[in-house]
């Protein structure tokens, strides 16, 4: 079926099967940052922004993206570099496989919440699993990033 959407500002017109999920469509267009970590909507690795909101691209039909704006980390390189720098300074990316989905959610949080408390940060990101870091380094990176943003 015909689909017409924007990934990182670039328009894509294509023919997709009705059961193609968004992650597979996005990866097929060369945006390999988007990762799959489970089949049950629990890990958050595949998080992309649809019209600015974080969604699970593994559980969203590609056709549901029709007419919408999709953003992956490739589309926000500047913010990724900035926040990623704070991550790197903590060693908080570790294996890095969950980083793109996590960073997309952090960016969404920054846009949605003003001066979030530690509890609000943790709640907002609770759907992003990480098996390497124990989450502490990520929290340190977020706090430094938000501190800098509020200055």
């Amino acid at each position: 079926m015909e689909i017409n959407l924007w990934i990182n500002g670039k328009e894509f017109k294509d023919d997709v099967l009705p059961d193609t999920v968004l992650i597979d469509f996005i990866r097929s267009k060369g945006f390999y940052s988007v990762k799959r970590g489970c089949e049950t909507s629990n890990c958050g690795l595949c998080t992309v922004l649809m019209d600015g909101k974080p969604i699970l691209s593994c559980s969203t039909l590609a056709l549901r993206g029709n007419g919408h704006d999709i953003t992956t980390i490739e589309g926000i390189e500047e913010e990724a570099l900035e926040f990623g720098g704070f991550m790197a300074d903590q060693g908080a990316e570790q294996c890095g496989f969950c980083s793109p989905g996590f960073i997309m959610t952090v960016i969404a949080m920054k846009n949605e919440l003003t001066n979030p408390s530690e509890e609000e940060i943790k709640n907002y990101l609770n759907g992003n699993l990480c098996r390497c870091t124990g989450y502490m380094g990520q929290l340190r990176a977020i706090k430094k990033y938000l501190e800098k943003g509020s200055k």
Binding site: S41, N42, G44, T47, K53, P54, I55, L56, S59, T60, T105, A108, M109, N123, Y124, L125, N126, G127, N128
Partner: peptide, 12 residues
């Protein structure tokens, strides 16, 4: 609802 998995899932 706020314990249901994560913001991404609740957006879907």
């Amino acid at each position: 609802v706020n314990n249901i998995v994560g913001v991404q899932l609740r957006n879907g």
